[in-house]
């Protein structure tokens, strides 16, 4: 019976760390973006919508390549990053960024679903009871979007766990540093006797995905009932 080696273990921990960080970082932005799209009308709405959803249809490799061009040593944002003393490329932070961009549309989708199901008069009621719009956002819209926030987070977490294309370009495949579960499986698949180890990691990936999707499913059901 094949067991997990310590490098596999590192890959699992790193995957979880990257996915968790990407999800938590994206949450406030996802919430604000969903709020903007649900409750406001403005000119550039369609354009913004397309831009945010682009990673859903774009090959992740393209995303990764664009990120590399932007954040690399001579990239578009290099002066800014140098000034801040931050190095992103080929670190786990780059993997976080790649995961965040690719998973963001999934996160937003669930939050918007929850926000759209909020009865507008609840917000009106809060306003006439003395709440300003920020107060209303925090005390009515946020708690009533809770289900969507958790559902979206779980979906985004699962997607981030599986991120490969963008990650391998922008973060590389460095054992212990940026080698996540999918990258490790890719390595094993390319080596002559790596099949058992690859399979073990596959089982781990499937188990994590099933767990997350179960959580997501039960939450969306709850949301649908409310609607």
């Amino acid at each position: 019976m094949p067991v997990l080696s310590s490098t596999d273990f590192d890959a699992i921990v790193l995957s979880i760390k990257v996915a968790l960080t990407a999800t938590l970082l994206s949450l406030p932005f996802g919430f604000l973006y969903a709020y903007l799209m649900t409750f406001f009308k403005f000119r550039a709405k369609v354009l913004l919508e397309v831009l945010v959803n682009l990673p859903l249809t774009l090959p992740p490799v393209v995303m990764g390549y664009l990120l590399l061009l932007a954040l690399g040593k001579n990239g578009w944002f290099a002066p800014l990053l140098d000034f801040l003393g931050v190095r992103l490329i080929f670190t786990w932070k780059a993997a976080v960024l790649a995961s965040a961009l690719v998973g963001f549309p999934l996160l937003v989708r669930s939050i918007r679903l929850a926000m759209e199901s909020i009865d507008g008069r609840l917000i009106q009621a809060s306003r006439t009871l003395g709440a300003g719009s920020l107060d209303s956002l925090l005390t009515v819209i946020l708690p009533l979007s809770r289900t969507g926030l958790v559902a979206g987070s779980s979906l985004m977490f699962a997607r981030s766990m599986g991120e490969f294309g963008a990650t391998i370009i922008v973060a590389g495949n460095i054992p212990g540093v940026t080698r996540t579960i999918p990258l490790a499986i890719y390595d094993y698949a390319g080596s002559p006797d790596g099949e058992p180890a690859a399979l073990v990691l596959c089982v781990v990936a499937i188990a994590l995905s099933v767990l997350v999707l179960l959580v997501h499913e039960s939450l969306t059901r709850k949301l649908a009932r409310r609607q």
Partner: peptide, 19 residues
């Protein structure tokens, strides 16, 4: 803005905060 008018509404179907 509504919050400064001190005019409260009771709606047809109560609109209590469900949370």
């Amino acid at each position: 803005p509504p919050q400064q008018r001190r005019v409260a509404i009771v709606f047809q179907d109560s609109c209590l905060f469900p949370h």
